[in-house]
């Protein structure tokens, strides 16, 4: 990987802002363009940026391979379970208002019931998937037969 002072310092400066922006996009998914997928992708990109400009170890220090894949399954699981909660409340699968999720006032942050919850889960899932994909590609770069497991 690259060993360049300028790239390292810039990415270290920029990364927190990218992450903050990613979280913003995820949390405002029900109010403005964006949402779980785009926000998660932005957040995941910041982790990829760190791994690229420093090295894989630095990236893994941010979020380990294992944590990433647990979050990946957890995010999808959360989505599926949110749908089941609707059934428990007497609606159909993934029902929102008719299952009694509080919709709040349109335009407010706490509004839209289940959509906000699902967006957060999708965000977690996408961010962790992007990092896992990237780690997997990097690890596969090592010559075959010399399988080093990082987790």
């Amino acid at each position: 990987m690259m060993d360049d002072q300028i790239v390292r310092i810039t990415s270290r400066l920029v990364a927190p802002f990218i992450q903050l922006y990613g979280i913003y996009i995820i949390l405002h998914g029900h109010l403005s363009p964006g949402g779980g997928f785009s926000g998660g992708a932005i957040f995941g990109a910041s982790l990829v940026l760190i791994a690229l400009s420093f090295n894989l170890e630095a990236g893994i220090k941010q979020i380990s391979h294992q944590t990433a894949s647990v979050l990946e399954s957890g995010g999808a699981l959360g989505f599926a379970l949110t749908g089941l909660v609707a059934i428990a409340f007497g609606g159909n699968y993934l029902a929102n208002r008719s299952a009694g999720f509080p919709l709040g006032e349109a335009g407010q942050f706490f509004s839209s019931g289940a959509i906000l919850v699902i967006t957060v889960f999708v965000g977690i899932k996408v961010a962790s998937t992007i990092t896992t994909l990237f780690y997997n590609i990097i690890e596969k770069e090592e010559p075959l037969g010399n399988h080093k497991q990082t987790d």
């Binding site: 647990v70 399954s73 957890g74 999808a76 699981l77 379970l81 749908g83 059934i87 159909n92 699968y93």
Partner: peptide, 20 residues
């Protein structure tokens, strides 16, 4: 009833739990 969707959701949930 909820059976049609439960078939699908049951399998999906097991799919997410299995690797964990």
């Amino acid at each position: 009833g909820h059976q049609p969707v439960l078939i699908i959701v049951l399998l999906l949930i097991s799919a997410f739990i299995a690797p964990l």
